[in-house]
Write a protein that binds this DNA or RNA. Sequence first.
DNA 1: GCGACAG
DNA 2: ATCTTGTCGC
Length: 226
Amino acid sequence: MDWMTTIADAVPAWDGDVAKARALQSTLAGQVSLVEDFAEPARIAGVDVGFEEQGAITRAAAVLLDARSLQPLAHALARLPTRMPYIPGLLSFRELPAVLQALAGLPEQPGLVFVDGQGIAHPRGLGIAAHLGVITGLPTIGVAKTILVGTHAPLGEQRGDSVPLLFKGRAVGTVLRSKPKVRPLIVSPGHRVSIEGAARRVLAGCTRYRLPEATRWADKLASRRG
DNA sequence: GCGACAG
DNA sequence: ATCTTGTCGC
């Protein structure tokens, strides 16, 4: 993969320098695009991370699905020694190395990737989904189960109901009810996807469960339950 | 200074 | 995220 050569710069080995990592995020955030410049993909993917050996091993899963049927076609796993602790706001530095390796293991690259976590709904505009998008150049969408930053108005009860997620006076994502009577999903671009497009695609990617099929499969495989 | 804080 | 059984509610 051509983007493999850029990983060292965009996801440097952890050296404990939080300020430096944050500065890099701010720089990369400037490369995020919310413009949808791609054709509707035939293949999508879901990626997620789990841990083994009490956290010593980071295990990433990437699942390729048919965009229309949402049926899984293939998957790849990657296991790497965990190199840094979980630090709110710096999740991507901890998980992306393994995610990139899993993604590279798929038989073909997807036209869109669903990532477990925030996209631009992040303190510096570069959650793990946006970071992955900038590194790979692939369209990505962040699908989180809880809010990292931002506030929102009360949400309706029906499937598809949504309200903007606001942060520092501007919309950075969507709080989306993917299914009646369940906690809403926190959806945000990503890369090469608009706020509206991200929410629309996530809703289309959810069938009978709260989470998108792509995310469910990736989660299952990363947590070694699949 | 005091909380909040994706996975 | 992970440690972990049964249990309350739709």
